[in-house]
């Protein structure tokens, strides 16, 4: 927890620094030689903010599992919870689907759009080639191993970029 707090402080410091630099820049003329180092520092600041936000995001993802294990049993008892009532802490991409379950994720009426290839279920809800949850005549919520092989043979990179949501049983 202290680690996260430190990173938050560092992030705040960087944001302050960036605001200060932007303010300075706004007062400089176009030809000013001071501009270059300030722009360079802004660049560095931004890179570091990006890095820290990535670290924080990683921790946030790992949070549910680790956070709960660290909870004291006494705290749980105080909240009137038992271990059985804890929210499911398995990462979401370990979910399993039957073909019938998969068919529910057809992308209609606010539902997500999932498709399965080679036993893995992928999320194509916001994939740009799946506008309106359809792709060259295919609709979401189905298993498309053969179709993928016939059109995208040797293009495993396509699958690698898709978010995995689970496995097909």
């Amino acid at each position: 927890m202290t680690n996260i707090e430190l990173q938050r402080l560092r992030m705040n410091h960087l944001v302050t620094q960036a605001r200060y630099d932007l303010y300075t820049l706004s007062g400089l003329t176009d030809q000013s030689p001071q501009k270059q180092p300030i722009l360079q520092r802004l660049w560095d600041t931004l890179s570091e903010i990006h890095f820290i936000s990535e670290v924080l995001a990683n921790q946030a993802n790992a949070q549910p599992a680790s956070h709960l294990t660290q909870m004291q049993p006494a705290m749980l008892a105080a909240n009137g919870m038992t271990l059985n009532q804890l929210p499911n802490s398995t990462p979401s991409n370990d979910r399993t689907f039957t073909l019938e379950e998969l068919a529910n994720y057809d992308g209609k009426n606010g539902r997500a759009a999932y498709v399965a290839v080679n036993g893995t279920v992928y999320d194509v809800t916001n994939n740009r080639t799946w506008a309106a949850a359809t792709h060259f005549g295919l609709t979401a919520g189905k298993e498309y191993t053969e179709e993928f092989a016939s059109c995208h043979a040797g293009q495993q990179a396509i699958l690698a970029t898709l978010p995995v949501v689970g496995r097909l049983l």
Partner: peptide, 19 residues
């Protein structure tokens, strides 16, 4: 290639979720 069958439906309103 494959228009129009491969590009259908042209318009759909029961859209996927808005993020």
């Amino acid at each position: 290639f494959g228009f129009p069958d491969a590009m259908a439906p042209f318009i759909t309103y029961d859209t996927t979720r808005v993020v």
